[in-house]
């Protein structure tokens, strides 16, 4: 098949898939399940979403790796296009927008003047050393730009561990003195909804957005995370939990026990005190770290990175070597 035929075939597939009513209802059902509701509640969510004007979303990138956006782009059920065309109006996102440079900045200015207001999503930590000069977009520091954008927003979502609590950007020695959105914008009275994870499951983002649109602010825990998605520990939902309960712990990664699904606690699993829904939401509808044989590293916890490292060994106790 030549390139043109491939393109035509792909377009036909895209048109066929499109953003059909069926896709949209499927998406609503999936979100209902992620929110802990019956799948049949999807129809109610669909009605609630259809009755509203699509809210404008401005998606800002701070000090980060774009992994959270990449995770979001790999949404399958619904596809990312359903999300940004049927549920929200994504008016600014540096990763997926066609515009660049001054045109992109103009798009941002236009989106901020939306008479209906907008929601601000921030991915990545905010460098604050020396007035924030170590993180700039178009000559403006992230600190000042995010203060401006988030300050006028109807609501702020911190996407990923870096935006939520500083994450790997804030790990020692933290040369740019990066901090999370909540800490950086606290003087403005902004308390974001934190969706930590490295990356967070895109379902948590979609579910939070839908909850905001249909039922308002979701209930948050003491670390600012929606309890809908971060209400239980990874340990309590883990498929290796029966082995923990029997006292069956794998002692090496290469052992038969590790392959047989024994508990990875002694190999450094941080699941017992990590709140996230990885075991039930799965990544790419396929798997999650512990199923793949890697212990949970506690990436959605406020102390991540420094307080949870070193990884792949039992948690460091008093008197242990660093």
């Amino acid at each position: 098949m030549n390139a043109l035929a491939q393109l035509v075939a792909r377009r036909a597939e895209a048109e066929e898939r499109g953003v059909s009513r069926r896709d949209f209802l499927k998406f609503c059902g999936m979100v209902a399940v992620a929110m802990g509701l019956e799948a049949s509640m999807g129809a109610q969510i669909a009605r609630a979403l259809e009755g509203k004007k699509k809210p404008s979303v401005i998606y800002m990138h701070g000090a980060e790796c774009t992994g959270c956006t990449e995770a979001l782009l790999r949404l399958v059920d619904p596809y990312f296009d359903v999300l940004i065309m049927e549920v929200v109006s994504l008016d600014y996102c540096e990763t997926v927008m066609a515009a660049a440079g001054h045109a992109a900045h103009a798009a941002l200015q236009k989106a901020m003047k939306n008479p209906g207001g907008y929601f601000c999503v921030i991915e990545g930590a905010i460098p604050t050393r020396d007035g924030g000069v170590y993180g700039q977009v178009g000559g403006q520091t992230m600190l000042s730009l995010f203060t401006e954008v988030a300050g006028k927003a109807k609501g702020v979502i911190a996407m990923g561990s870096c935006a939520s609590y500083g994450g790997i950007q804030a790990a020692a020695p933290n040369p740019s003195k990066a901090i999370g959105v909540g800490a950086a914008l606290k003087p403005l009275g902004i308390a974001p909804i934190n969706l930590p994870g490295c990356p967070p499951n895109p379902v948590n983002f979609v579910g939070t957005v839908v909850h905001l649109l249909t039922k308002g602010l979701p209930e948050l825990d003491t670390s600012g995370r929606p309890k809908l998605f971060y209400g239980k520990t990874v340990h309590d939902m883990c498929e290796r939990r029966p082995h923990f309960d029997k006292g069956e712990f794998a002692l090496t990664f290469s052992s038969q026990q590790a392959r047989d699904g024994w508990c990875l606690h002694k190999l450094g699993c941080r699941g017992p005190w990590t709140y996230n829904n990885c075991p039930t939401a799965l990544f790419n509808q396929t798997t999650w770290p512990v199923r793949s044989g890697a212990p949970c590293i506690g990436c959605s916890e406020p102390g991540f990175w420094d307080q949870l490292a070193p990884f792949n060994r039992d948690v460091r106790e008093k008197g242990d070597d660093a």
Binding site: D221, T222, F244, F249, H265, K266, P272, W273, Y275, E301, P302, G303, Q307, D314, V315, R316, E317, K318
Partner: peptide, 26 residues
Amino acid sequence: DSTHSCLGCHRKMREAGKMPPLSCTR
């Protein structure tokens, strides 16, 4: 997760840089 509870309190202390016991088996 609450600080009234053993694990919740020990987790919060770890975030503050202290070293209370945290490992299940140790």
